[in-house]
């Protein structure tokens, strides 16, 4: 059975952050930051391997990170790292059943207890901390 036969939303539906509130935005950011950090990790291994070319080769490669584009990429990496860490702690606690509320007889209008203010605060905190860390990184790198 093909994807069309199954009428699956596909990746476009999976990453659409517009329909289900901040939780789905966090879901998307978690995936993007995870993939971004993986790309950075691969690049970082490639970068540090340049030491095999000796001091000159190492210094030449290091100069790339000292450019405006290099600083901008590092600032984004800082933001991704902070968001992924803070939101990751929230998600891990949630996965263990921590902070998702207690089962109870539901009453209309059925506001889900698992989508509570603690988790929303956790998401907003992750975004704000990532933004602060990125701005601090930009200030340090461009303030030289």
């Amino acid at each position: 059975m093909t994807n069309q036969d199954e009428h699956k939303e596909g990746i476009g539906g999976m990453i659409n952050p517009r329909r289900y509130g901040i939780e789905r935005v966090a879901y998307l950011l978690m995936r993007l930051s995870g993939l971004g950090l993986l790309a950075y990790f691969i690049g970082h291994i490639y970068e540090t391997s340049s030491i095999l070319k000796g001091e000159i080769g190492w210094n030449e490669f290091l100069e790339i990170t000292q450019t405006t584009e290099g600083h901008a990429i590092l600032a984004i990496v800082i933001a991704m790292c902070v968001f992924h860490t803070v939101n990751g702690i929230r998600v891990m606690l949630g996965h263990g059943g921590v902070g998702v509320g207690k089962p109870a007889r539901p009453d209309y209008p059925y506001i889900p207890a698992s989508q509570n203010i603690r988790h929303k605060m956790g998401i907003y905190s992750a975004i704000i901390l990532a933004a602060i860390a990125m701005l601090y990184g930009l200030a340090v790198m461009f303030g030289e």
Binding site: Y20, E23, R24, P106, D107, Y110, P112, S114, Q115
Partner: peptide, 12 residues
């Protein structure tokens, strides 16, 4: 834990 399932459930 995206939580969309809970947001659309019509029975709580």
């Amino acid at each position: 834990f995206a939580g969309s399932c809970s947001q659309v459930c019509p029975k709580g």
